[in-house]
């Protein structure tokens, strides 16, 4: 964390794919994710926000998060049972940027 650089950047990660539940064909690939540190702040809400939220939202958060701004498809070669080969297309991040945060919880 100490050496982290502000901003939102491509970050490689390993992905393993299977052609079906039985794993008849299998392959792995290094895909790209977006990882980074974008600016966010929280401060007391304006009076208009307090009134509009029935005094529930006494804090306002103005934030950006690291998002994928461009995707591309790449082919992953699969090795199958019985020396057969196959291929499958998966998505990988092409570009990243600090943008709107998703509010859904995980």
């Amino acid at each position: 964390q100490e050496t982290a650089i502000p901003g939102c950047h491509l970050h490689p990660f390993n992905v393993t794919v299977r052609s079906d539940r039985h794993g008849t064909c299998q392959g792995s690939h290094v895909a790209q994710a977006c990882v980074g540190h974008c600016e966010s702040s929280a401060f007391p809400s304006r009076y208009s926000v307090l009134v509009a939220s029935s005094y529930r939202h006494n804090i306002t958060s103005v934030s950006q998060c690291c998002t994928i701004s461009g995707l591309k498809k790449v082919k992953v070669w699969l090795h199958c049972v019985g020396d057969r080969r196959g291929e499958l297309e998966i998505f990988t991040a092409k570009a990243c940027q600090c943008d709107m945060c998703r509010l859904s919880r995980y």
């Binding site: 982290a4 794919v17 990882v35 980074g36 600016e39 702040s41 998060c65 998505f91 991040a93 509010l103």
Partner: peptide, 28 residues
């Protein structure tokens, strides 16, 4: 008040919604 830069990420996944997000913000 609060200010900063939190680590956040998005990565493509094989199943819907196809993008998994970990979005955290600097807050109280």
């Amino acid at each position: 008040a609060c200010w900063g830069r939190c680590q956040t990420w998005e990565k493509p996944i094989l199943e819907p919604p196809y993008i998994e997000a970990h979005h955290r913000v600097c807050t109280y």
